[in-house]
């Protein structure tokens, strides 16, 4: 869990305040705020949730409950790169199972897991509206469709590379 020194908390609080100011200090902006927090911090931490609750004047319960409801909001740290594999019927029928196995083979983790170096989080998700190019995955904001098992290593390569070149 958060091993939070006060300095970090102050930073986190300031970030939250800035985002809340930007989105608007009302409860109905909770989801935009969570989106923004995630964008700037990578995930929505417990202290951020408490601060958001305090800023919006709503219960921590509501913030936590809402954050944990949506699959695009993370309340725990996740990998640097998030691989989302669609496993809804159109992709499933076109072989998303094989793609899943290929990704697992390439990065060594099952859906729902994060690599030990923190580079990849792999998850299966519901339809992303890419049925026309099934099977499809999204890596971060990038979309890859009409996938074949053979294509996976080369697609993933640049995310490995990116990690190393920029020295994380």
């Amino acid at each position: 869990m958060e091993s939070c020194n006060s300095n970090c908390c102050v930073q986190c609080d300031a970030e939250v305040v800035a985002i809340v100011d930007k989105c608007g200090r009302t409860e109905c902006n909770l989801i935009p705020i969570l989106h923004q927090l995630q964008r700037s911090m990578g995930y929505v931490s417990n202290e951020a949730m408490e601060k958001v609750a305090a800023e919006l004047g709503i219960s921590v319960a509501q913030v936590h409950g809402t954050a944990t409801f949506y699959s695009l909001i993370y309340t725990k740290p996740h990998g640097k790169n998030v691989i989302r594999l669609c496993d809804s019927p159109p992709c499933h029928l076109q072989g998303s199972g094989a793609i899943r196995d290929a990704i697992t083979k390439a990065i060594g983790i099952e859906p729902g897991e994060t690599t030990s170096d923190g580079n990849f989080t792999f998850e299966t998700v519901s339809c992303m509206g890419l049925c026309g190019v099934a099977p499809a995955i999204m890596i971060n904001d990038d979309v890859y469709g009409n996938l074949t098992v053979d294509a996976i290593p080369s697609i993933l390569e640049k995310y490995f590379a990116c990690c190393c070149k920029e020295g994380c």
Binding site: N46, M49, E50, S59, V60, A61, Q62, H64, G65, T68, F69, Y70, S71
Partner: peptide
């Protein structure tokens, strides 16, 4: 107390879980 998570994983949790 509040609902956390979704679907089958829904739980009632305290505070931040």
């Amino acid at each position: 107390l509040h609902f956390s998570g979704r679907g089958w994983d829904t739980e009632i949790v305290a505070g931040l879980g």
